[in-house]
Amino acid sequence: MKKTDASNISGADPSRRRFLAGAGTAIGAAALVGALPRRARADDLPHLSPTDATAQTLGYVEDATKADRAKFPTYAAGNDCANCNFFQGGSAAWGPCQLFPGKAVNAKGWCSAHAKKA
């Protein structure tokens, strides 16, 4: 039996205790990182083409000033993807949009589903 001193009353090896505490922390951190939602980087995404079927349905244009106002009267001057609630690109020129998964939209673009950020 090991001799214990006052600082190690339980008799457990302090290096083992440190290892187990570190391993537990690492496993917890790995689980937390794995549970976080992954965001696609705009650089990794192909740009949405205005000829895409969903893009055409929603009237997506890469330049908001060229929105078809006759077909989509909901367009308002100043609205673009950069100030839409669905745009996730921050201040980037192109970024992911929740409406077009797997594609990057132009921050200066617009579609009929535009929902201005609060």
Rank of each mutant, 00 (worst) to 15 (best):
C97H: 13
S91T: 12
A104C: 08
L32D: 05
G34D: 14
L58E: 00
A70Q: 14
A113T: 01
G89C: 06
F72N: 03
C81A: 11
A6P: 04
V33H: 03
D80Q: 10
T57W: 05
A55K: 01
A55E: 02
D80R: 12
G22S: 07
R16F: 14
Y60L: 00
G109F: 07
Y75T: 02
Q98C: 15
D80I: 02
H47F: 07
A35K: 05
N106I: 04
T4E: 11
C97A: 12
A23W: 06
A6D: 08
D68V: 01
K2D: 01
W94H: 13
F19D: 09
G11R: 08
L36K: 03
D63G: 01
T4W: 10
F87K: 09
A35P: 03
S7H: 14
L99A: 09
A35S: 12
K117D: 07
A104I: 05
N85R: 14
G59K: 00
D52N: 05
K3G: 09
A67G: 01
K66Q: 13
K71M: 03
D63W: 04
F87C: 13
C97D: 13
G22N: 11
A23R: 05
G11E: 07
A6F: 08
R38Q: 00
A29C: 05
H47P: 10
P46W: 09
H114P: 03
Y75D: 02
G22T: 04
A30D: 10
A77I: 13
W110M: 03
K108W: 12
D63V: 03
N83K: 05
A77T: 14
R18C: 09
A113V: 00
G89D: 04
S112K: 02
Q88A: 12
A93S: 14
G78N: 13
P37N: 00
D52A: 02
R18W: 11
G59S: 00
T4F: 11
L99N: 11
A113C: 05
G78C: 10
S49W: 07
S91P: 06
T57Y: 07
A21L: 14
N8K: 09
P73W: 04
T4S: 14
L58Q: 00
V61D: 05
S10Y: 13
L32S: 06
R69M: 14
R39C: 00
C81Y: 11
Q88P: 06
L99K: 13
G95W: 15
C84H: 03
G11I: 04
A76L: 12
A55W: 01
P96M: 08
F100M: 10
P101Q: 12
P101S: 13
L58N: 02
A104W: 11
A55R: 01
L36S: 01
A82C: 13
R39P: 00
T54I: 00
G109W: 06
A53S: 13
K103S: 11
A93M: 10
S7N: 15
G11Q: 06
Y60Q: 00
F19I: 07
P50S: 04
A42W: 09
D80M: 08
A92F: 10
S15Y: 13
R41Y: 09
K108Q: 15
P101W: 14
T57E: 08
A26P: 03
K103E: 07
